[in-house]
Design a protein around this nucleic acid. Structure first.
Length: 794
RNA sequence: GAGCCGGUGGUCUAGCGGUUAUGAUGCGUCCCUUACAAGGACGGGGUCGAAGGUUCAAAUCCUUCCCGGCUCACCA
């Protein structure tokens, strides 16, 4: 068979990807003993966006670990999911299909979403396959599929019965763009320029000025607040102030939470401007003045501003205040604002009935759980703990959207009782089905719940979804899972919620380890963002570079560390791929007549093999600690410097000139080249799956009898090949070689130029057994004893 | 404001108690040597953010400070 002269990564990567898929190489097969499973809980990327560079990076890192464990002989449970439920998907469908969910029939919209998701999924997933991610794509799940809906609704019922879920009408964070309640974890913090407006309130005949950034909330004002020790306004306490423009009276109250140094030291309490307003509203049992609707448009409380959106109302109210000389001063400020992470809209608060999972009382357990999980890198645990400690709200799990997992409840029209479905009827949509029995009050009329669950309420169940909870009998022996892989930026959501659910359902942690990957920064160290225009598209990269090269780059970063994107590092990967190919072709050309019997080994071969055993040991230990960047550096260094730069040069003479050097000397080199190349390919295989597969199949398929390098055995240290006594000799050999090269370089002669080499007595004695190799490699016509020197032959 | 991570040749980076401080890239010089010129050999270049301290010994541990980044809080 004709072998190709050069390696075409484009063709080869496509070929092997198809081969792996056809052979179902990454299919999970349940082993006899669950201890032979290595299970990985992988993040389902959201269908609403394409693969970004962070995905390519972190999934690659996870894949190194998965492939390593597969080569150790574990049954690797490594599913692939897509997150295609909830708001992000709705927005995508709305954009693609030019529709508005709000304006459509709910059922028709949900159907359109499902249809669109099905259309999009294959091409969405393709880049992951192209990157060589070795998930079992035939067993992928989606967070909206039937099984996920089942698990998610089952979870709801379970937690409801455990008394963990409650519905309550209370102030909740609200997005006026998405028209839904949101949770604390969905807040983004931005710094915004705004204006401090000094507005005059009348208390009796006295003027009281306060500063606010939100004058549009004047009609929602329910009190003025001051610090108890406020000097200037001491006498105001207990009096009433008249709200300007709207002319109604509100009490002046004193509270410690007011910062007397901020603004004028007086602040208005509105229902609701922020969290503190909610606190005061509760504490002082203040009236509720709901000012705007779900879209953020003002209602009749706003009188002449009715119907205006909040922002517009602000402008007009400021104008009117100005006109009536009630606005005494304006000052530009920068302040922090919570926005909805999905759309950037400022978070508002509305009193609404929502469903919650009670989590505030379990902070301690949540922190204890974190200690039972091994965090890599360890410092990431702090972020989780910090988040838990700062939790301020229970987890709001209801969303006023359409495409998602329905909340599986009805309420009785007559007595308002909550009616739950039976487990065997899940998943269901309460809008489409009815309870099978009458309510305990006798009524047969029910109001179906309209809301769907927060996406995280479902994706926090990925371990259970993947392991077939609750009906899989093996579940408890496979749970907790071995490993969770994810990006560090979703600790407060995905890690946190998954741990919450696990503790509540199973009273244990969801996985033993969690490995967090860092962020990709641009070459200047700035966070990548579309708005900055510094985003790197991995699909474009894949057209330019091989997946192996991109993975090589991803392997260079310590797990959990943010790294800046360096295209040069990918180029290095590309070079390494080419170098592997060339070195392998060279080795292969000398193996056609490799004796099958093991040979007596030359000293330099023993030296190489000993170093190789050390490398195996080092790589195995590193991989066991998820330290793939150490593996990459070690194998890379061995391959380039020891194997190619030195060893291949050392054995050329023996390989090319068996007549002069002897058949045995050649055979010894053949044995060593064979062993070293095979081992290096295997050590590189988790990081660069394509080139290693290509070369393995080309050169080692027959003898190894595996379907692929990726299901071949990870190398182990062969004690018989360890000859540590040769290390001093071999290391000195390459030092001398290096000095000879340096001499020739300084003399500006070809490396082929012949020299006379004079060695110190000690070196002479040490290296005498390998003089034949030394003479050939250095092109030394003669080796003498004396003070060290290299002389050019004329 | 709090917490966390980092600051190593021009650039990127390994090392995290004892190494002539790793490698890459760029730069300079040379070499078409039967795997590789999208290559190879060789070289100049850093004292490890700053200042103190611990130690026989510190880039590596401690303290303080400076700089960059991230997370959380602040949202009148």
């Amino acid at each position: 068979m004709d072998k190709p002269k050069t390696y075409n990564s484009q063709e080869a990567e496509k070929k092997w990807q198809e081969y792996w898929e056809k052979e179902k190489l990454y299919k999970f097969i349940q082993p006899k003993q669950t201890k032979d499973i290595f299970s990985i809980d992988t993040p389902p990327p959201t269908l609403s966006g394409a693969m970004h560079i962070g995905h390519a990076f972190s999934y690659s890192q996870g894949d190194f670990i998965a492939r390593y464990h597969r080569m150790l002989g574990k049954a690797v449970l490594y599913p692939f999911g897509t997150d295609d439920n909830g708001l992000p998907t709705e927005r995508l469908v709305e954009k693609l299909k030019h529709v508005k969910g709000v304006k459509m029939d709910r059922e028709a919209f949900v159907q359109l979403c499902s249809k669109t998701v099905a259309e999009l999924t294959p091409s969405f997933v393709q880049p992951w396959k192209d990157m060589g991610i070795s998930c079992d794509f035939n067993q992928s799940y989606s967070t909206i599929d039937k099984h996920s809906r089942y698990v998610s609704q089952y979870s709801f019922l379970d937690l409801y019965r455990k008394g963990r879920i409650y519905a309550e009408e209370s102030p909740v964070a609200w997005c006026t763009t998405c028209r839904t309640a949101i949770a604390q974890a969905e807040f983004d913090n931005i710094d915004q320029s705004s204006t401090f407006n000094d507005i005059v309130f009348k208390v009796g005949s006295k003027d009281v000025t306060l500063s606010t950034t939100r004058p549009e909330l004047l009609p929602a004002c329910v009190a003025l607040m001051m610090h108890p020790s406020h000097k200037q306004y001491k006498d105001l306490k207990g009096k009433f102030a008249k709200v300007p423009l709207f002319n109604y009276e509100v009490p002046v109250l004193a509270d410690e939470k007011v910062d007397p140094t901020k603004g004028t030291g007086i602040v208005m309490c509105c229902t609701f401007g922020d969290k503190t307003d909610i606190e005061w509203w509760r504490k002082y049992k203040l009236p509720l003045r709901v000012l705007f609707d779900d879209h953020g448009n003002l209602n009749d409380l706003a009188v002449k501003y009715q119907g205006l959106p909040l922002k517009e109302a602000r402008k007009q109210i400021i104008a009117d205040l100005q006109e009536q000389h009630l606005l005494t001063h304006q000052k530009p400020i920068q302040h922090a604002v919570n926005v909805h992470e999905r759309c950037g809209t400022e978070v508002e608060f509305l009193k609404k009935r929502q469903w919650y999972i009670r989590v505030l009382d379990m902070k301690e357990d949540l922190i204890v759980a974190a200690d039972k999980i091994t965090w890599t890198p360890e410092f990431m645990k702090h972020r989780y703990v910090h988040w838990v400690e700062n939790l301020a709200w229970d987890w709001c799990i209801s969303r006023q959207r359409f495409y998602g997992v329905p909340i599986p409840v009805w309420s009785c029209k007559k007595c308002n009782n909550v009616i739950l479905p039976e487990e065997k009827d899940l998943p269901l949509d309460p809008l489409e089905t009815k309870p099978k029995k009458a309510c305990s009050c006798g009524s047969k009329e029910f109001i179906p719940e309209q809301d769907v669950l927060d996406t995280w309420a479902t994706s926090s169940m990925t371990p259970q979804i993947v392991l077939g909870w609750p009906n899989n009998k093996e579940f408890s022996s496979s749970y907790p899972m071995n490993l969770r892989l994810q990006a560090s930026e979703i600790i407060r959501t995905w890690s946190f919620y998954t741990i919450v659910k696990s503790l509540l359902h199973h009273k244990t942690i969801p996985w033993h380890h969690i490995v967090l990957s860092g962020l990709i920064m641009d070459p200047q160290g700035q966070k990548m963002a579309k708005s900055k225009g510094n985003v790197i598209d991995p699909v474009v990269l894949l057209q330019k570079f091989s997946a192996d090269a991109i993975r090589y780059w991803a392997a260079g970063a310590k797990v959990g560390e943010d790294i800046s994107f360096q295209e040069k590092e990918i180029v290095n990967g590309q070079k390494t791929v080419t170098k592997l190919w060339n070195a392998a072709q060279f080795v292969a050309s000398h193996l056609t007549d490799k004796p099958s019997k093991k040979q007596k080994l030359e000293l330099m071969d023993q030296w190489l093999l000993t170093k190789l055993q050390q490398l195996i040991q080092n790589c195995t230990e590193s991989f066991d600690q998820y330290s793939f960047w150490t593996v990459k550096a070690a194998v890379d260094n061995f391959f380039w410097n020891i194997f190619c730069d030195y060893y291949l040069e050392i054995v050329k003479d023996r390989l090319y000139n068996p007549d002069k050097r002897g058949k045995e000397a050649r055979a010894s080199a053949q044995f060593t080249l064979h062993a070293a190349l095979l081992t290096l390919l295997k050590l590189f295989a988790p990081i660069m799956p394509y080139i290693t597969e290509e070369l393995y199949m080309q050169l080692f398929l027959k003898e190894e009898k595996n379907k692929s390098i990726h299901v071949s055995a990870w190398p182990t240290v062969d004690q018989k090949l360890l000859a540590e006594e040769t290390l001093v000799l071999g290391d000195r050999f390459v030092q001398i070689l290096s000095e000879v090269r340096q001499f020739k370089s300084q003399q500006k002669v070809s490396l082929k130029a012949e020299v006379i080499l004079t060695l110190e007595k000690k070196d002479y004695a040490l290296l005498e057994p390998v003089f034949a190799d030394l003479r050939a490699t250095c092109q030394a016509r003669d080796i003498k004893q004396g003070s060290f020197s290299v002389t050019l032959c004329v």
